[in-house]
Design a protein around this nucleic acid. Structure first.
Length: 797
DNA sequence: ATGTTTATTATTTTT
DNA sequence: TAATAAACAT
């Protein structure tokens, strides 16, 4: 590559910079430079939080391209989320321009889907295979239990599912599993596993785990295919390496080939997905499997203040199974970490929301600079309610996932069915949606009949439809028919057999024939459309022919909103309109299956972010509220009896703390509503590992003291009863309870008010609530709202 | 085929 | 407790 060419493609160079190399290395510290400049052979980057990891990755790729002369199309970067892949490409685009588009960047799953789509035929995978998500998996599993006559009350389907998933993540196939299964429980799992795989094959489906497993098998059994990819990708990069599983690591090794140009980036202290079979030991294996690997440690933290770093270091240092790693703060100054206790989760939420509002008002923060982190999704509720009450905007991440919504799944199922009518899960889902007179009874009969004939369910649908060339106009009329088996040639089913054979003939006359005939027509029409029109048009055809819009809007419960979701899906489908008929739909379905909701976090909107600790990985915020620091919640009760899991909880806490750039608040509730009652929880053990020096600041009134975890529950109760006064809400704001907003006159029911956001309304009630007043207002538009008097932007009209 | 009652079960969830 | 699924009755 010539110097002149580099100049023209590099948007980052604008001055008289001597060369691409100097330019790409400037502004990097010594360790970062070392990582960027390493070209040949294995490289392991151990990158602490906020150490400029992404910057190093992006610069290293740019360096390979611009200085070493590697074509971007010969570099493969594997990330853990689609969002991370997109970010990487975007940032690379700023260094390389349009060239960056030729880089392969994606998740392991997306990459494997692509490989299997292209070369899966070698191991018997159809080009039209469908990807089953966890809901789909559950429904297959249910049928597998049924077929194996295993009582789901006896063996938890969830546990069996987890066992199968774990096996796949460890590259254990059905045969091996069966051979190893000795204990009665394992034998049950083995049976279900076998049946489950057969059912997936029958539907031409693969699940998430299969994407990895099958790609591995393809490479293992077909060296010529592997060779193709090995020679294409000269350089391989794996991000978030600490959270890869055995299958993913095996794939990485296969792809790295003999050249061993593999760069793994990770941080063992941030390994938080072992429950999804990630194995931190991959980091240790890396150095064994790639002897002579260069190891670079990035330990300078550019994100957080020294106070935050101190707190983080204190927490993580208590882990025993750990490679010591220092975090050196680059920033100076800052504000101490605040620890606070609220009486219950409601007050915890109020306190947090108020403080976030104060940061915005007094300290130049935006709501979007603040995030509330919690261990379990259930905690989000209190914060959501508090935000609503204060009229504070918020962004709730990943609560109801877009692609899990009923309406979206329904329509996606129609598209999948259009593409691949063998897809049993999708067929079962849409058979009677919207209701078309095919009830549970008819559906069951249909499926039983299909089994008996050894054909797929769609095939059975078509056959039923053909039974009556001129469908009787009156549905439900029972007529005698000629024996069905005569022209239907039953054949022994490879999947269902024995038990069902020789039983009574299925009373096919009772099957809702007319609706089935119409459904058969619909499936045919959709299947035809697949090859002739775009994904969007297929979707619109499905919408039109099913009357889905009317169905949604009629089914009241938030029909409008659900229709909006459909529109959103249409918008996504429109993005694939350019592609020729079958590929567009395939690509669309793949995107739907492999894209997570976190990707759609709307960063444009200003609002307090409510997010789980797991989802917060990789993000950063100026102010972080790490909530629910109680024994049983963080660490979670289900992790408390296992030292390994306990260490993971600690890492989770560490991840949370290190999201903070400037402000860190650690909150807990003395009492919390949990399953069936209210429990007083002890302060989290992690709190006592936070050095006092991170908490104290001479000029701050630190009302809350460092927690005393050794106090018994009784003592706590007593202590609480002795101080019934001000809630922590007021503690920070002057120490004593004070009447809320004394400058405002009280409101009375019947008063007319105007709210900044909700418009005009009438006061319904005005009642004291703690140190404040709760105002209930009926707004002309926007319904009845409960607001906190001191907070709500209300004025009397 | 639909609404009503009872039963069940409740970590995290990048794909 | 509370949310949802399955079973049940209408």
């Amino acid at each position: 590559m010539t110097e002149a060419h580099e100049r023209t493609t590099d948007v980052a160079i604008s001055g008289p910079t001597p060369s691409a190399a100097t330019n790409l290395l400037s502004g990097l510290n010594a360790a970062q430079r070392e990582a960027v400049e390493h070209i040949d052979g294995p490289l392991l980057i151990v990158a602490g939080p906020g150490s400029g990891k992404t910057r190093v990755i992006v610069h290293r790729i740019a360096y390979l391209v611009r200085v070493v002369g590697v074509s971007p199309s010969r570099i493969c970067a594997v990330t853990f989320t689609n969002k991370a892949a997109r970010e990487m490409r975007d940032r690379l685009g700023r260094l390389l321009g349009t060239q960056a588009e030729r880089l392969t960047a994606g998740t392991f799953h997306a990459l494997c889907a692509q490989i299997l789509r292209r070369d899966g035929a070698a191991i018997g995978i159809s080009k039209d295979f469908v990807i089953y998500d966890s809901d789909d998996q559950t429904s297959v599993l249910k049928r597998a239990f049924d077929a194996e006559q295993i009582d789901p009350k006896h063996f938890s389907p969830n546990a069996v599912h987890a066992a199968i998933s774990r096996a796949k993540a460890k590259l254990i196939d059905v045969e091996t599993y069966t051979a190893q299964a000795v204990a009665p429980y394992d034998r049950v799992v083995a049976r279900v596993y076998a049946r489950y795989q057969v059912m997936l094959a029958q539907s031409q489906a693969v699940d998430f785990d299969d994407l990895l497993f099958r790609a591995y098998v393809l490479f293992r059994d077909h060296p010529e295919v592997l060779e193709k990819y090995q020679s294409r990708y000269q350089h391989l990069l794996v991000d978030e390496f600490q959270d890869t599983n055995v299958a993913q690591y095996a794939l990485a090794r296969q792809l790295a080939g003999r050249q061993h140009n593999i760069c793994a980036v990770g941080d063992p202290d941030q390994a938080i997905y072992s429950w999804r079979h990630a194995d931190v030991r991959n980091i240790l294996s890396f150095q064994r499997d790639f002897p002579g690997a260069k190891v670079v440690r990035l330990e300078t933290n550019y994100r957080s203040t020294p106070y935050v770093i101190q707190a983080a270091a204190g927490v993580i240092a208590a882990n025993t199974q750990r490679i010591e790693k220092d975090l050196v703060p680059h920033k100076t100054g800052g504000v101490p970490v605040v620890i606070t206790e609220a009486y219950n989760e409601e007050e915890e939420a109020h306190w947090v929301v108020r403080e976030a509002d104060r940061l915005r008002r007094d300290e130049g923060f935006r709501y979007g600079d603040c995030a509330v982190l919690y261990r379990v999704n259930a905690q989000s509720r209190a914060f959501e309610e508090a935000c609503l009450r204060y009229g504070l905007p918020y962004r709730l991440v990943g609560a109801v996932r877009f692609y899990q919504r009923k309406e979206v799944k329904d329509l996606v199922s129609y598209l999948r069915l259009a593409m691949n009518p063998q897809d049993e899960v999708s067929l079962a889902r849409v058979l009677n949606v919207p209701p078309r007179g095919i009830g549970q009874k008819s559906a069951d009969d249909l499926v039983r009949w299909a089994r008996e004939l050894g054909v797929s369910t769609v095939e059975a649908v078509h056959r039923v439809a053909n039974l009556s060339p001129q469908p009787s106009p009156r549905y439900g009329e029972r007529e005698r028919t000629a024996p069905l088996s005569a022209d239907l040639t039953p054949s022994p089913s490879p999947y269902y057999g024995e038990g069902e054979r020789g039983g009574d003939a299925i009373p096919i006359t009772r099957i809702a024939r007319v609706p089935l005939a119409r459904f058969s027509e619909l499936v045919r029409a959709l299947a035809d459309a697949v090859t002739t029109v775009s994904a969007l048009e297929v979707l619109d055809l499905a919408l039109e022919r099913t009357g889905y819009k009317e169905f949604l809007l009629k089914a009241e419960e938030g029909g409008e909103e659900r229709w909006d979701n459909v529109q959103e899906l249409r918008a996504l489908a429109a993005e694939f309109a350019e592609m020729p008929p079958p590929e567009g739909l395939v690509a669309f379905l793949e995107r739907v299956a492999l894209v997570s909701d976190t990707d759609n976090l709307d960063e444009a909107k200003d609002g307090l972010t409510l997010i789980t600790l797991h989802q917060a990985k990789g993000l950063e915020f100026r102010a972080v509220f790490l909530t629910g620091l109680e024994e049983g919640l963080l660490p979670h009760i289900r992790s408390m009896d296992d030292p390994q899991q306990l260490e993971e909880e600690r890492r989770l806490c560490y991840v949370g703390i290190t999201r903070a750039e400037e402000r860190l608040y650690l909150t807990r509730a003395f009492r919390r509503h949990t399953a069936g009652g209210s429990m007083a929880g002890m302060p989290s053990r992690f709190l006592k590992d936070i050095p006092v020096t991170a908490l104290t600041h001479p000029s701050t009134l630190q009302k809350t003291t460092v927690p005393e975890p050794r106090m018994t529950r009784r003592e706590r109760e007593r202590a609480a009863s002795l101080t019934p006064g001000p809630s922590p809400l007021n503690v920070e704001r002057g120490g004593a309870a004070r009447p809320a907003a004394p400058d405002k006159p009280a409101l009375r029911p019947g008063d007319h008010v105007r709210h900044a956001k909700f418009g005009e309304g009438v006061v319904v009630s005005f009642q004291p609530s703690g140190s404040d007043h709760e105002v209930t207002v009926a707004f002309a538009e926007g319904g009845v709202k409960r607001l906190l008097y001191s907070m709500a932007p209300l004025e009397r009209v």
